[in-house]
Amino acid sequence: MSIPSAPAVTSGRKSAARGGRAAGTREQLAPGGSRSAGYFFVALYVLLLLLLGVAPVVYAVYLALSGSGGLTSSFTSAFSDFRFASAFEHILEFMVIWLVSQTFLVVALVLMLHNLSQRVGAAFRFLFYIPGALAGAASVIVWLFMLDPTASPFGFILHWLGYAQFDNTVAPGNLPPIFAIMAFWTGAGGWIVVMYGALNNIPHELLEAAQIDGSNAFQTAMQIKLPLIRKWIVYMLVLSFAGGTQLFVEPTVLGSAALGVGISKYWSPNQLAWFIASEYDNFNEAAALSLVLLVLGLMVAALLVWRGRLFEVE
């Protein structure tokens, strides 16, 4: 997981003013300079967007629809694969555990940190943030050891849970929570930093007023702070959801180190897509699976973005 970063939110004042205009483009021409200049500035980005954003999607659609058995054949054969349902079950379970616990814990931790003195809070934030440097293969290798009861610093917890050896810990039923823990470990710190920053932007007067009104720390947190970071929570959910559906490196690397015990090469849907492409040489079906994932990710993201009124771009 890479470091999350912030959705930028422009000021409400500006948007309101802009929104009042009927057709803004023409009258903004003067302050905005000439049109050709605008094209010039965005040209390189637009090229990359076309080549690497739009073209692959179009190509994926084309591939998915040009399977040997007709338009929808790639989709039907992907859906009827005996590994399809389990891969999606895995990912669903992982997402529910991860998103719920991450949302709850990040918010709880950041609210707690915000009650501490600036210096102590900064120290904690830093310690939480550091694992963000380990992503992908690196973090999986570290967790290989954390999950081995005979070598792990957390061995006592694993023993207490009744796991005597690595194979017990990575039992199939445990994998979704294990990947959720890994994702939380690398990602949560970044979000905590971001949300802490957002909390710091709350005007002091507002918090003081709440104090004078007699609300305690908990009430202030719930009634004032929480609503003010709502946008960030939605943003965290959007990015996490989109990334989470794509789980690939964690099960891949864990599988190659665990001697194949309990974790298949098609544990997640993205792995299954890759498996079908490489082991059956069927790129059409793989493209169909990728599209399913993409559409799923975009739908949920769109829902959250619209319902959460996240991106106020003007």
Binding site: L51, A55, L63, N270, S290, L294
Partner: peptide, 23 residues
């Protein structure tokens, strides 16, 4: 362009690895 940027930004990049490879 701004809207497309937002959509693509949310779009999980790994879904495109295979078509990108072929491209």
């Amino acid at each position: 362009l701004l809207s497309i940027t937002l959509i693509v930004m949310i779009m999980p990049a790994t879904a495109l690895v295979l078509p990108l490879f072929l491209e």
